[in-house]
Design a protein around this nucleic acid. Sequence first.
DNA 1: TTGTAGGCGTTATCAG
DNA 2: CTGATAACGCCTACAA
Lengths: 344, 344
Amino acid sequence: MTVTIKDVAKRANVAPSTVSRVIADSPRISEKTKKKVREAMKELGYHPNFIARSLANKSTQVIGLVMPSSADKAFQNPFFPEVIRGISKAVHDRQYALQLSTGETEAEIYDGVVHMVQGKRVDGVILLYSRANDKIMAYLQKEDVPFVVIGKPHKKAEEITHVDNDNVRAAREATEYLIELGHERIAFVGGNVNLIVTMDRLRGYEKALKSAGLAYRKDYIVHEEFLKEGGQEAMKELLSLAEPPTALVVADDLMALGVLNTLAEMGLSVPGDVSIVSFNNVLLSEISRPPLTSVDINIFQLGFEAARNLIQQIENPNEPIKRIIIPHTLVKRFSCDYYKAPSQ
Amino acid sequence: MTVTIKDVAKRANVAPSTVSRVIADSPRISEKTKKKVREAMKELGYHPNFIARSLANKSTQVIGLVMPSSADKAFQNPFFPEVIRGISKAVHDRQYALQLSTGETEAEIYDGVVHMVQGKRVDGVILLYSRANDKIMAYLQKEDVPFVVIGKPHKKAEEITHVDNDNVRAAREATEYLIELGHERIAFVGGNVNLIVTMDRLRGYEKALKSAGLAYRKDYIVHEEFLKEGGQEAMKELLSLAEPPTALVVADDLMALGVLNTLAEMGLSVPGDVSIVSFNNVLLSEISRPPLTSVDINIFQLGFEAARNLIQQIENPNEPIKRIIIPHTLVKRFSCDYYKAPSQ
DNA sequence: TTGTAGGCGTTATCAG
DNA sequence: CTGATAACGCCTACAA
């Protein structure tokens, strides 16, 4: 039925092993036979069987991708298509394939990962998120599976290859930008508290306040997820304080969109009444109203480097642990303005 | 190194084939030996090797997913995470894995698909989009690979299993809703003209106009992609007509978001000056300003059914061709209002 | 009910 | 430079 290496071998009057070598483009085969074999392959319409190769090789040329729980609204974040685009790019040239984790709940996803790892379906794994006490990460580490995480591991970051932004600095700079504009009452609107990226950005925000000599107020820190039902409450509370903030540092663009709309509903204008700076600089930030000032974290690059380094790690077992920091830049649009003292 | 079926066999004092049968839960093995073998598996930490199984079986339990070109902004559409969520759900229970097509350009993606099909890496394929003259679809058909498309195939739809909405009807109903509100000057803002879904929705729009006795005007049809640089131009032109439309049927929520912002920039209010109804009802439509009236097309279900049917097709070779229509419903929010004659 | 043996399509190790 | 031959880990007749 399917044409195999043997058929090609017969057709070209050589041994199967020779055909195999031609496929691998071994330098120890004469150009003449190579040509002969290649012709036979063409004529028969031969295509190597990856599965058989994998079995013999103990290498699948497949990389597993682990997304956060799809039950989570975070799944809808445009961050993911974009990292995947980067990963896909890096992976395509080197002939690797991508396999996606499946399942809705955390438990299901965990099982899925165990399955694809134990079943030897993948050579390595990329974790597309990083949060505190992640079972999957612990598992991968225990099993000594090649993997890289996008984001900073919660613990033992120096033992795990990861690709990240300097989120502390990014957040500090974003906050400093607002300070430069004259704002003194700046609030922080974070996402899921378990995500390391949230923690880091919060720390950067803190640092900026501190070095500017501004007070760090607990009531200025909000961690609701604005995309959830009723998530607007915390936002409303924040702006009903006796001394409401005049500027917000928002965890990411999708959340910023939610914030933008809550503000509009409350009759507050951006950047007129409140300035906003957010993160990620996805498509959304351009087409929002007003277009968002956002920290571009080079999502594509995050994915690209993660994949590139994972492949290196797979192909070279004693590749050292690495920490790769992708640069960021503040993209100024129209969601920030100078602080204006309220006209009494 | 790795523990195989043989190791388990020795440990349990049975033949490898017996172990194999236990894995498959063959009814022709006594409960007693089953238990014995299972204990041995546990003790040794055995996990079946999927690759080896695939080779022997000629079945990989993997489904390939083909996304549109990631060079395309369409890639950022929240439609995709959501279909994938549905697919993932359907696939997880039945122990199938998902493989993603890689590559940026169309040519790269085509190559990728050929690779994964010829390399026997997948048992079947789901096409996550449908457009006119798609090389990939033609290829899959020619090679007789089990596949299903999400959306309606351009040609020979009766020969290809597909999962779709009745987009013609959906668009007609959406348009009729605007007509009921008193609108007579209704424009259509479509996405990529090559996508079948765009064509169908345009047809539905046309039908609604026709049966309401309203004129179908060419200058009311716009097909720019609003997410592109300069895509707002067509929009502006549309609204600068001598008789500008008072309502818009917009291809999908993401585009609607862009339209919303272009309108705001032009100083037009929604739904005050212009009413908008769009499609897909993704998260975005809830958090946009105003929240969008949108046709819910049950994206999750589209993915779920596609996967379910593909698996049936894979496991039962003479499964008939099917056309599955997922129901839709108009979700009314705040982007539509009654037509108000302009105060002279 | 269970064991034996051959095969799935490649690659790798030896010879030559 | 090329050819046998034995794996890779599992499945499935066919036997027993």
